[in-house]
Design a protein around this nucleic acid. Structure first.
Ligand code: SF4
Ligand code: SF4
Lengths: 132, 132
DNA sequence: TTATCATAGATAAGTAAAGTCTACAATCGA
DNA sequence: TCGATTGTAGACTTTACTTATCTATGATAA
């Protein structure tokens, strides 16, 4: 029960883009170097962000990954869901009806965490960091 | 990023003990049958609960696993921590100081979830279920 | 003492994440 | 149009973790 390292990388990439290059594409080569991971692995991960609609990809010379116009609204939860998926943390083998109290308790707790992650945007964090 | 099935089983065992046998030992044989899992695997898992101080084990004939005296205070978080460990869900490879804002955001969200799991006791849930 | 029951170690099978390689498609600039 | 650049996708390997089983051992009640 841990966030994958891919999630960690995704958050760092998003933060980097917001802080350093909000409007022009950055190649996976540059990003991979910043994070010290391989290009192919990172590109595979970034494709998930593209599919989730968080960033834009540009092929060809001077291409790379670029933020979308609404990048100021992207939350931590958006990034995490794009990588980890949106299925619940708790899934039992059986399904004893909607009134299962165990599931209710755990899922409610889960929602608390998601709410906190939803309330914090990458943009907000970038501003905080620049403030320092 | 999911709760392990062991956690699921642990919650069910605890709930069963609180509801059906708060004071006498139940053998792993009986418990394994209830959950449809193997005895050896379940016993290994229950040993974690014993080590975490949540339940008591009794060897010998008519032995088994028994709740401790303070069982009414055991929270969901206690059970989950006993099985999954207490390390944070988010661990980056580097450590750029305590003022790392990314970690702060994620860990804060994590604390929200833990708080919710801490506020709910197994005993409370058992009462709710009997009420139905 | 004997039957019952938990514990612990070794180990195997299954599954998901992490990482690599390669061929291909899209785009830009000349 | 052509060639260099850059992302995409599939197959594949490696690694790590979870789940599961077997077996020997230790503790306890009757
Ligand atoms: S009681 Fe709830 S959590 Fe347990 S098996 Fe049934 S549906 Fe799943
Ligand atoms: S910035 Fe924070 S989360 Fe990122 S590597 Fe540094 S310490 Fe870890």
């Amino acid at each position: 029960m841990k966030f994958s390292q891919a999630t960690d990388n995704a958050l760092h990439v998003m933060l980097y883009l917001v802080m350093e290059a909000p409007d022009k594409p950055v190649s996976v080569q540059v990003l991979a170097e910043k994070l010290s991971v391989s290009q192919t692995y990172l590109s595979k991960m970034l494709t998930k962000l593209v599919k989730a609609g968080l960033i834009h990809s540009v092929s060809g010379a001077n291409g790379g990954y670029r933020l979308k116009r609404n990048y100021e609204e992207i939350s931590f939860l958006d990034v995490i869901h794009a990588i980890e998926g949106t299925t619940s943390l708790f899934e039992c083998s059986f399904n004893h009806g909607q009134q299962c109290l165990i599931q209710q308790v755990v899922m409610d707790a889960e929602r608390q965490m998601e709410q906190a992650l939803k309330n914090k945007t990458i943009y907000e964090l970038a501003k905080q960091m620049k403030g320092v």
